[in-house]
Simulated assay, not measured.
Amino acid sequence: MSTEEPAKFETVMIIDDNMIDLYIASRMITQNNFGNKVLLHTTAEEAIKYLQHNQDTISELPQIIFVDIYMPLMSGFEFLEAFDKLPDSLKNYTKVYVISSTIDNEDIDRSSNNKNVVSFHVKPITKEFLDRIFNKM
């Protein structure tokens, strides 16, 4: 008889315009019991609208957000600027991680120095990375 552990987090959001990266990240999250519910957004605008719409309903908010830097229309950095304007209650509840394939040190520094970003991680999301996040909480 096997008893499955409950997911480490109730809701996780992934923001990435690359469908393959979205799929890989969501599978990694669900297969490793990291998130019970995974919200997938292909644009940062969609994600901000979702957060704004649900800002007063904690149960609908993600505890973790993984956001890519390079996306059309609204970049990950622009997402972070919009995220910073959200209520403190939401920002204190939700932890943001920048996930990117960039090797540009300027982008990495810019991400790492953003007060709303917990850390920067090079794609893809791995089980070890998810374990590190959980163990730091």
Rank of each mutant, 00 (worst) to 15 (best):
T94M: 11
E45N: 06
D17N: 15
Y97N: 01
F129D: 02
I108P: 05
Y23L: 13
M1F: 08
F83A: 10
L40S: 08
L80H: 02
L130Q: 04
L73T: 12
M28H: 00
N32S: 03
M28T: 15
K123S: 05
D88W: 00
Q63W: 07
D109Q: 06
S89G: 01
D56M: 14
F9Q: 11
P87Q: 08
G76V: 07
S111W: 07
P62T: 02
V117F: 09
I15D: 01
I69K: 04
E106C: 00
N92R: 10
K95S: 13
N114H: 15
L86A: 05
K123V: 06
I58T: 09
K127H: 10
Q31E: 15
R110S: 02
F34G: 01
V117Q: 02
N36T: 11
I24L: 12
I99D: 03
D104S: 10
K37C: 07
T102P: 05
M74C: 00
N54R: 03
E106H: 06
K8V: 11
V98L: 04
S119G: 08
I24P: 04
F77C: 11
I64L: 14
Y97S: 01
D107G: 00
E106W: 02
D21Y: 10
F129W: 15
T11D: 10
I48W: 12
F83M: 11
A82N: 14
I125R: 00
E106I: 01
K8H: 15
K123Q: 10
M137Q: 13
I99V: 13
K123H: 14
I48S: 11
T42Q: 15
M19E: 14
D104H: 07
D21Q: 11
D88Y: 04
F120A: 02
E5T: 14
T126Q: 05
N54W: 08
V118I: 14
Q31K: 14
V96G: 05
I58E: 06
L90K: 09
V96K: 10
G35C: 05
P87A: 07
E81M: 10
N33E: 07
A25Q: 12
I14H: 01
I108L: 06
E128K: 13
E46K: 12
S59E: 09
F79R: 03
V38G: 01
P62C: 03
F66C: 12
I103S: 07
K95Y: 06
N18F: 04
L40Q: 09
L22S: 12
I58G: 00
H41A: 13
F66Y: 15
E106P: 00
N36I: 04
A7W: 04
V98M: 14
R27N: 09
E46N: 12
S26P: 00
D104Y: 03
G76N: 09
L22R: 15
H121N: 00
K49L: 08
E60T: 12
I48H: 08
F120M: 04
S111K: 13
M13G: 01
S89Y: 04
K91F: 03
T42E: 14
V98G: 02
K8L: 15
P124T: 05
R110K: 13
R27P: 04
N135P: 09
S75G: 12
T43I: 00
